[in-house]
Amino acid sequence: MMNDARDLYVELHIPPEWSRIDPVRQAVGLCVAAVLGSEDLRDALGMVCAELLENAIKYGTSDPHGVRLVLQQSIQGNQKEVILSVINAVERTSHHLTALQQRIEWIRSYKTPAEAYMAALTMVYERAEDHGGEGGLGLVRIAYEGGCQLDCDSPAEGYMAVHARCLVPMSDRDLT
């Protein structure tokens, strides 16, 4: 019998504290491993989760609801799509959403995520020669190492959401 799309649905509201990121990374990874049975996906989506939460905590603003994380899957033809979304409050005057959209467009301007990642690494190296600068590797690492497509939007005024989507082939068990 075909698996229901709700085989995997996790929603968490997390206080925006740095120390919360690693437990959530591990929890997301374990949920992925439990449902999808892949250690590679466990590590990849755990990393994706940590990078998105780091951004949300660095660039978000305080919100009584904390940072919201949703991990879910849907069926796309003969594949599963796993979607990890992180939603956080931002200052109304923040340019962070625009900056993220520009970064995602920059990643898409390369033929492959690997090419974009190599270009980003080279930029970090060149900045290191000039003794400074932020890395800016998080999103492009999600695309390359996490194998995820990225997009972002504003679900409500004062909030932004980043979605990382990856396709997972159906296993034999899924198809029986």
Binding site: M47, E51, E54, V124, R141
Partner: peptide, 20 residues
Amino acid sequence: EHFNSSTITAIIQLIQEARS
């Protein structure tokens, strides 16, 4: 077990400095 992307930046800086 795991490193974040900021750590990758630090490793790249080490590579650059070691080469210099």
